[in-house]
Design a protein around this nucleic acid. Structure first.
Lengths: 162, 162
DNA sequence: TGCGGACTGTTGCTTGCGCAAATAATCGTA
DNA sequence: TACGATTATTTGCGCAAGCAACAGTCCGCA
């Protein structure tokens, strides 16, 4: 029942992209309470999870920026907050005093253990659990292809190399 | 080669969600230049597209808020900017002077026609075009299910109705 | 050894968002 | 008709993010 004056506005590619955006946004909206209840933001959780999965539970600031797709200044302030909360510690990189590592503290890992059960439950309820095994497989396959196409490792300054 | 101290941190549900988030963020990063080159933000384009597809090319502020998943105050300011740019016009709702419609102007439709070609091309290059027909179908099916689960029509104040 | 250029992270400034309070209009009921 | 409750939108305030400028460190080469 859409009323379009211009057929350009109704391209199936737009519909497909809209579906991706809406599913994403809606899921995030559903997940948000699980971490907000613990006093964290989505980016906090993202960063903590990235650190927890990295060797030595730490990452260089710039690598964390690349992984979270934040600007370096954004990461500086994110780590500022996490450090103030005691969830992360800065340490200067041995051998290169320009670099700084952000390392997950035990309190940080604990915060993660505190958030994850509710987070996983919500994922189950709103995402993985509402799909058949086959649907989930199909979804993940498509996402994997898109992610690999679109996610050029370091994604700080994207200047379309057209 | 991930090093996890806690198996909780490596749940397949987390991987699945991470895939969705990364595909989304990466795609957005790829698309951003297409609208930024025209002086618009992603939310601008989203709003303009919603309006263009609505009856009379207009929506009430609160409906626009629901569709864009912004807060109502966010929409107030979004429409402020679009109106100042001449892409949208406010008109008080006939019959209920509390309500306000945001209506797409001809300049707004023109801006959309200006952005869409590049936008569609980018979608093709980074999203729909990199998938086989079958992969795309599988992806869209999964997304549709998730979207319908997660997107309860009006999504302004989500209070988990557990 | 010393100097210029490149790289890493932080700071100043601006922009945009959400929450909560304020404002304006309508509805229901006596 | 009048008043309290409800609904729609706007404003005040605080926070978080990006960009651009800056400071500190390292590397290469004469």
């Amino acid at each position: 029942m859409t009323e379009t004056d211009d057929p350009l506005f109704d391209d199936p590619r737009l519909t497909a992209a809209g579906l991706l955006f809406e599913a994403h946004q809606g899921l995030v909206a559903r997940l948000t309470p699980t971490w907000r209840a613990k006093g964290l933001s989505g980016l906090d959780v993202n960063a903590l999870m990235r650190l927890s999965r990295s060797p030595g539970r730490r990452l260089r600031m710039s690598d964390l920026a690349a992984q979270t797709m934040l600007s370096t200044s954004g990461v500086t302030r994110l780590v500022d907050r996490l450090e103030k909360a005691g969830l992360v510690e800065r340490q200067t990189a041995p051998g290169d005093r320009r670099g700084t590592f952000a390392e997950l503290t035990e309190a940080g890992a604990e915060a993660l253990r505190d958030v994850l059960p509710g987070y996983l439950e919500a994922l189950d309820r709103w995402f993985t659990g509402v799909l058949t095994h086959k649907q989930l497989e199909g979804l993940l396959e498509g996402l994997r292809v898109v992610r690999d196409t679109v996610h050029p490792d370091a994604v700080i300054g994207i200047d379309d190399p057209s």
